[in-house]
Design a protein around this nucleic acid. Structure first.
Lengths: 355, 355
DNA sequence: CTGAAAGCGCTAACAT
DNA sequence: ATGTTAGCGCTTTCAG
């Protein structure tokens, strides 16, 4: 008590504790605790008085103290391989929105595409005993990592693609690719090139593969084949899309009439480069992507839209429900996607040179 | 002790406390604490033994407990008005990198451009007693907010622009705009339009104004004037850049030969729309932006480059030094910027119609 | 409806 | 070099 008032005197209200409030209100700390947390068993009158005093004093409970007492930090971790890529920052926005709306904090762990940083997650201290739940953004987890996570035993969900043995939220990437490819096919294209997404980092993931599989499936069903020279690789970035286009056009032989890109960012890079090289889109080359990136509308890019923001929100909501006690809330769900036809796809030019 | 072993037995190693380690190693908790934190006054032998046992047991200190004991959370807050805009996610990446490299956590507070959310920051609980320092990303703070922050008395720095009474890091936006404008002027342009950045939200900030001021200054010094109809507004988004171009071109009267945009995102929108409307860039219209957004290189956009990532890193480093005890570490510093000439600026077409 | 008291797990003097 | 002993500020039975 002596100590308390001492501190109050010198420190201004920069450290008011529950005891200060209790003393000022002439009640016990237990009552203050109940009052400020809106728990029952406090008379309306006392609660009001306590709340007023707490407000005047600028009291805020110490998260460390209540965390220690309750065993919960009220923060959920978000593990992201990147933070500067569309899917990721959009998802983060969704997660943040849901979290803060519910009085939770968001602790961000960004791997920044660096292999080495990978260890950070499980380097004990980082994730363990610091968060109540973990949301993983579109990256693969090794079996050991999954096992570690399960041992830690906190709710976990991955957003953006499937991970073995983990509940996840994401679109059906295979179906999305099939639809995109079929759009091209229906337009009359037969000579379709593929700008393959492939992760350059160690954060490999199923999504790139699924997108390619869907493309292949649709092609096969339509009786089309993909010449090896029309199968180029990118790493989901704009510049890799540019490089992909150049690679395609620098090869001798006939050119495709359409290009399927495993992501909008690559599609944008490709069409920008096409434009620069004097290849007209869509007259000479139709281009389609997947994602509906922020810039896609402005670019007039035909694509398959998905909403990482909503996926992030949904994943967070499930985590929160689980934490609220509804076990079984976290489960895998398939998010929606839909084709948006814009200006970069059109029927192939009449009578293209034979393949 | 009875309790401890009970828990160890049933819970697996999902809750090993410092006592468990101490017991297993036959030392006191104080020694374990010193050992795991790498503090001196522990013999090499004991330290080694303790570390091994801690590792085997999967011990990780509870952040709440040590937070309570030390008064520090080892977490720094990042307040961002947006997370889905280039400057912001790049800066966040820089902050994250620096923070995690030093064993600190990053707590993200995103206002998501919503006015209402604004209250979140100072709604007590959120920021107070939860973080050791705060890094604000490019948004204004009201005098009351600044005052609140000072009362809380944690290191604070803003990245991305000046804020009254707060140390901040950012480029000299005025000078950057002058340089961009002078680039246009040197090319021979006299008829230059302005795509003004103006915040649509309540998160007003000095940056948009500084960029306009710089433009005006350079124009004035060159003896050029800006006809009111060539002064259009945008809100820093691509679509507002598109709208801005349309507004410019829909007005009767002569057209400008160049367009100064207060940000790359708007510049990109404008040039995309120009292309769509059949106005050739740079032949008929030179376009310049500011930022050097990720897409700018691919778009061939001439711009003034800056590095939010480095600014975020620097700001974080200062905060960390301050926390490490070097008071005075946090101070305002001007970050660098430089002109990058690409393909969207060229001399005006010969003999343009008189204004 | 309210209070007393026992921790939550760790750190930090202060001994030894 | 290591152990003892108080707390850090809050929550939570359990009494009253």
């Amino acid at each position: 008590m002596a100590k308390t008032s001492e501190r109050s005197q010198r420190g201004g209200h920069a450290g008011v504790s529950i005891e200060d409030v209790a003393a000022a209100a002439g009640v016990s700390t237990a009552t203050v605790s109940r009052a400020v947390r809106g728990l029952p068993r406090v008379s309306a009158a006392t609660r009001e008085k306590i709340l007023k005093i707490a407000g005047d004093l600028g009291y805020v409970a110490s998260s460390s103290a209540s965390g220690l007492a309750t065993g919960r930090t009220r923060t959920v971790g978000v593990l992201a391989p990147y933070v500067d890529r569309w899917f990721f920052f959009k998802a983060i926005e969704g997660v943040d929105r849901e979290l803060h709306a519910n009085g939770y904090n968001l602790s961000l762990f960004n791997l920044g595409g660096q292999s080495g940083s990978r260890e950070r997650l499980f380097s004990k201290t980082m994730v363990y005993k610091q968060i109540d739940a973990l949301l993983v953004l579109c990256m693969s987890l090794t079996p050991e990592e999954v096992e570690d996570l399960q041992r830690i035993d906190i709710p976990l969900v991955v957003v953006g693609g499937p991970v073995e043995a983990c509940p996840s939220i994401g679109i059906n990437d295979f179906a999305a690719s099939v639809e995109a490819t079929e759009h091209l096919l229906k337009l009359g294209h037969r000579r379709i090139a593929l700008l393959h997404g492939q992760d350059d980092s160690d954060l490999n993931f199923a999504v790139p593969r699924l997108r390619v599989d869907g493309f292949m499936k649709a092609m096969k069903d339509a009786g089309c084949t993909l010449p090896p020279e029309w199968d180029v690789f990118g790493n989901f970035t704009v510049s890799s899309g540019q490089a992909g286009f150049d690679e395609l056009w620098s090869k001798p032989g006939p050119k495709p009439t359409a290009l399927f890109c495993a992501s909008d960012e690559m599609a944008i890079g490709a069409m920008l480069q096409a434009r620069r090289r004097g290849v007209r889109v869509p007259e000479e080359l139709s281009v389609i992507g997947i994602d509906n990136h922020e810039f896609s509308e402005a670019m007039g890019l035909t694509t398959i839209a998905q909403s990482p923001l909503e996926q992030g929100q949904l994943g967070t909501r499930m985590l929160l429900e689980e934490l609220a006690g509804t076990s079984g809330s976290v489960r895998s769900v398939t998010a929606g996607h839909h084709l948006i036809v814009r200006e970069t796809t059109a029927p192939p030019a009449a009578d293209p040179p034979a393949a």
